[in-house]
Computed example of a mutant assay.
Amino acid sequence: MTAPIYLSVVVPVYNEEEVLESLYKRLTKVCDDLGKPFEIIFTNDGSKDRSSEILKEFHNRRPHQIRVIEFSGNFGQHMAIMAAFERVRGEVIINLDADLQNPPEEIPHLLEKYQQGYDYVGSIRDIRQDSFFFRSLPSKFMNWVRRMVTGTRITDQGCMMRAYSRRIVELMSQCHESSTFVTVLGYSFATNPTEIRIRHDARTEGESKYGIYKLVRVTFDLFTSFSMAPLHIFTVFGFFVSSLSGLLVVYLLLRRLFIGPEVEGVFTLFAIAFFLISVAIAGIGIMGEYIGRIYQVVRSRPRYLIREIIEDLSEPQVSSVNKRTAK
Rank of each mutant, 00 (worst) to 15 (best):
S22E: 15
D33T: 02
E70H: 14
R135T: 06
D201V: 02
V19C: 11
V11K: 04
F134D: 15
F223Q: 04
L110Y: 03
F237Q: 13
E16R: 14
V19R: 14
I294E: 15
M142H: 04
D130V: 06
F133D: 07
G73E: 11
V10N: 04
D32I: 01
R146A: 15
E70F: 10
I107M: 04
S208R: 04
T268L: 15
P12Q: 04
E170Y: 02
R135A: 09
K327P: 10
F42T: 08
L185G: 09
T204G: 09
Q77P: 07
L253A: 15
F132A: 07
L313T: 14
V182C: 12
V92K: 10
H78A: 08
V241L: 14
L276T: 03
I40W: 02
E105V: 03
S52A: 15
I93K: 00
R62Q: 12
K56V: 08
R147A: 01
S300I: 06
L244H: 10
F237L: 14
F85H: 11
I154T: 01
V184I: 14
V266H: 10
S178M: 12
R197S: 08
I309H: 05
D312S: 04
A190Q: 00
S320K: 13
A229Q: 14
I124M: 01
R256I: 03
E207N: 09
A84N: 05
I40H: 02
V11P: 08
P4Q: 10
F226R: 15
T235R: 10
T224N: 12
D33E: 14
L96F: 01
V19S: 15
R146D: 12
F189N: 01
V68Q: 06
L55C: 05
